[in-house]
Design a protein around this nucleic acid. Sequence first.
DNA 1: GAATATATCCAAAACGTTTTGGATGGAAAT
DNA 2: ATTTCCATCCAAAACGTTTTGGATATATTC
Lengths: 346, 346
Amino acid sequence: MANLQDVARLAGVSTATVSKVLSNTPYFTEETRRRVMEAVAALNYRPNLAARALASGKTRIIGVVFPYLYDAIFKDPLVLTLLEGIDEVMTPNGYSLLLSAPRLNDESVEDYLQLIQSGYLDGVIAIDSVPNSPIAELVTAQELPLVVIGYQNVAYSVRCDDYQGGKLLIEYLIKLKHRQIGIISVLSTSNHAVNQRLQGILDSAHAHRIDPQSLPIAIGDFSIASGERAILELIHQHPNLTAVICLNDRMALGAIRALQGQGLRVPEDVSIVGYDDLNSVDFFQPALTTVSQHASALGQNAAQVLLAVLNQESPDTVVLEPTLVVRASATAPREWALPLQGGRVS
Amino acid sequence: MANLQDVARLAGVSTATVSKVLSNTPYFTEETRRRVMEAVAALNYRPNLAARALASGKTRIIGVVFPYLYDAIFKDPLVLTLLEGIDEVMTPNGYSLLLSAPRLNDESVEDYLQLIQSGYLDGVIAIDSVPNSPIAELVTAQELPLVVIGYQNVAYSVRCDDYQGGKLLIEYLIKLKHRQIGIISVLSTSNHAVNQRLQGILDSAHAHRIDPQSLPIAIGDFSIASGERAILELIHQHPNLTAVICLNDRMALGAIRALQGQGLRVPEDVSIVGYDDLNSVDFFQPALTTVSQHASALGQNAAQVLLAVLNQESPDTVVLEPTLVVRASATAPREWALPLQGGRVS
DNA sequence: GAATATATCCAAAACGTTTTGGATGGAAAT
DNA sequence: ATTTCCATCCAAAACGTTTTGGATATATTC
């Protein structure tokens, strides 16, 4: 491995000159530049990034943090889409992505601290799925440029308007004449964005003269299986429901399958809508009506905001508008109120 | 940011002592250790990783490279599963993952070279989806510990036996009494593993006295849409087919959808099998019969092999056995040979 | 009591850059 | 003929670790 000294020696200049020529500093003759570049080529020289990082204080590495939750991080297809968006703008700008998925236990947080306090990262993009997770505070306390994807109250953030997304869903159902609407959510402590969606739904229901208190809510945990459990609980206790809003797509898929397993048809007997617009949900039978939060654009925006911050600017918070994606899993309710007890609800 | 010197000064020892105490070197009094640890805690000291990397030559970072192909990397759910497996064993061992998805153009390869020749990586795990991609050679030329997931002829590799997987699929179909079997593959230059699957299918057909030349093959590009196109081409030109093997799940899903769009039933009219066992394929109608290549285990094994190499050992190549996952998309063909022309084949 | 071994620690070199603070010329200005 | 200025380059410091090669003191052995 040739180093700067070798190059300098071969080119007959100092290491400072080589360093500066390589970073395109002005004030060098063409002749000098040429000699340096030839030496670089001859020795196949590549700068040592560790040394560069030590001397300059910059690593050109940014950390991408996905706090581990319910094991969901690697199972959530949205994460991959976010990553793609981030990569798309970071890589062309010369940054590499360091993946960090700290589990939220003490030992893991210690490792995480070590990482962000080690000077190894020029910046961090974090997903704040969990309210009050310590991740963000730890980073800001470090004076490390941070942009979070979500709702944490930090200087720089990017999100899709989940409140608005919730509104879109229930307003669509109301427009279809649904009045008996159930909700499958998650524990309010477990996800910030979902809380916003729920709030949007409830507020919007209120605005349409539906008592928010009257909307039955079952609790899942994002997984397909939990959606199956929750829907059964819901229609068992509230057989008159004509529509159910699931606060993510995977629970919606579970709900649909469970209903079909009970001999109920979607959307004819019950309308189901989801949230996320996962890649594959247009493939299910019926194709899922859902809300897209433009995950790829979110990732891109997060990366752009971080680039701006690294560039000493102060970019504004970005809030993307969600989009309702109408497919086949929700229609108008049948006007005659067929009792659902026909299905075997165990 | 406190550094080693600050700690040393506060503890009244040398920096060498602090460094060694922190790395649990023997030959220190309890008293000394205590003083050092107290100083570390008091100053909230964390070692600077760049400096450590420079001095020790080790970064505790390993590169995970997914050569970009057809834009598929971030769209392929298997990648996420692989990543999860790798993370699961690397993180607890104190390594971080640096993501690298070099596009295969010159500029990008240059960036990639820069990365692996920069001393920033202790090792690399690479997926060799593309035959003859330069990625692996570049790494080995660098004397960087490398394990590839796939078939490249390098010192250390891990794979699932795709040849055997192909065999499993066609033998299952043959056992179900299918004889008119089509194949949806990809360009032979585009993916090593798929070539193996195809070879397994053809060899096995031959062994069962079916002329491999007689099996019609249509070419897709891994995508759902290409599966739709390919199946239409196939049944149009070979209306007597009773089963089609798709060399990945996404093309299989496309094929099923296209058939259904033509008014054909799966598996009653045509059996379809896939390859990969993506998370969601048990959810489709019909649930997809496919082969699991145990992506998570693959990732874990790759990581373990790399750890062994980093530990100066010479682990053997790992070859996992694929598993046939029988679901609903393939059954025995109807005994009466109903001409398929009934369906509208455009 | 001298020689040897062992435990404990330190000073300084080394890692390969970037960056600072000039040094050295020659051209332009006075 | 000085002075000033600019273009061009270099020597050396700095970044914060790890590691090497002792040094010192204490204990052990003969």
